[in-house]
Design a binder for these strands. Structure first.
Lengths: 165, 165
DNA sequence: TTCAATGCAAACCCTTTGCACGGTA
DNA sequence: TACCGTGCAAAGGGTTTGCATTGAA
């Protein structure tokens, strides 16, 4: 999801032997992503670890958990620890740039919050997550809460199912 | 919730000094509750600990967690351990006589499954749980899952809110 | 009498935290 | 340079499990 392809500005046709140097340069000239800006707005430092995690999150389209995010980040840069992944995830959640989902008592799974609100259907066999959105359900939820005398702060709707065959 | 008052058959006006004996007798003559029958149908033994937990669950109307259930059961009979509470809760869940809810990554909370399906609104300030049911939402959920090519096995709808004032 | 169920404590899993060091602003 | 963020390992909270013992059937 979300094209974060590469805004990396590199001379085309650079010889392979210069890759390391180019990668280093790209760190400098790349324009800040929306998530990076959000972090800056939070007044927190933009460390190498956080940049890597941001990258991994932007590339993910499968709602990974903290462990999986660490695995991916660590494979890009071994200097990313699991503790930092957790700490950064909290910061990002606080900044509103990612959403945390606690499906069925399982470890929390994360996704970037760059798309409009939606709910989830979880495939019980594969763990796959399908996203959907229903205006009608959203409206009904608000009505119900109002009737019960509450203001909704947030809500969760999860469907657990098996693929029809 | 649910009247489990007492099907205990005891001579009325029994002197207080005989309470212990009467309690013992009531164990014998009390007719089995639906939950006890469900356990028997599962082919598991009906131990003292399980009877106590069943009792506590039947009396609860506040969606207690395992720890709280243990506290209550233990105050009735100190010979109920937390491990047994967890083990029995699993058995009961398997037998379909209780429902387990994992609200917001918090410890699981339980309720008897003797009433029709309903969803929950959680008061973010007090942790109170309000139950509700919406046929419309139920129907919409089924439609959505079908459109996505899935059969719903179960679902969760939780509203998190703050009391209006 | 048998073997499922128990209590206890240790183990588990996910997540958070204390501390001394390291790197961003 | 200041001090926030880090890695590491230890601690935390909820839940499960191995094992010898108990007790329901």
């Amino acid at each position: 999801m979300q094209m974060r392809t590469n805004c990396i500005k590199v001379k085309p046709l650079a010889p392979a032997s210069h890759l390391a140097k180019i990668a280093f340069m790209s760190e400098i000239v790349r324009k800040p992503t929306p998530m990076e800006n959000a972090l800056r707005d939070e007044g927190v430092r933009l460390t190498r670890q956080r940049r890597v995690l941001l990258q991994v999150l932007a590339d993910a389209d499968d709602h990974p958990d903290a462990n999986e995010l660490h695995r991916r980040a660590h494979s890009i840069d071994p200097k990313v620890s699991l503790a930092t992944v957790y700490r950064t995830l909290s910061v990002l959640e606080g900044a509103g740039v990612i959403d945390r989902h606690a499906f069925e008592g399982k470890p929390a799974r994360f996704e970037t919050a760059d798309r409009p609100h939606h709910d989830h259907l979880i495939d019980l066999e594969t763990g796959d997550v399908v996203e959907f959105r229903s205006e009608k359900i959203e409206r009904l939820q608000a009505e119900i809460a109002a009737e019960l005398g509450y203001d909704i702060v947030h809500h969760r709707l999860e469907l657990y199912g098996r693929r029809k065959r």
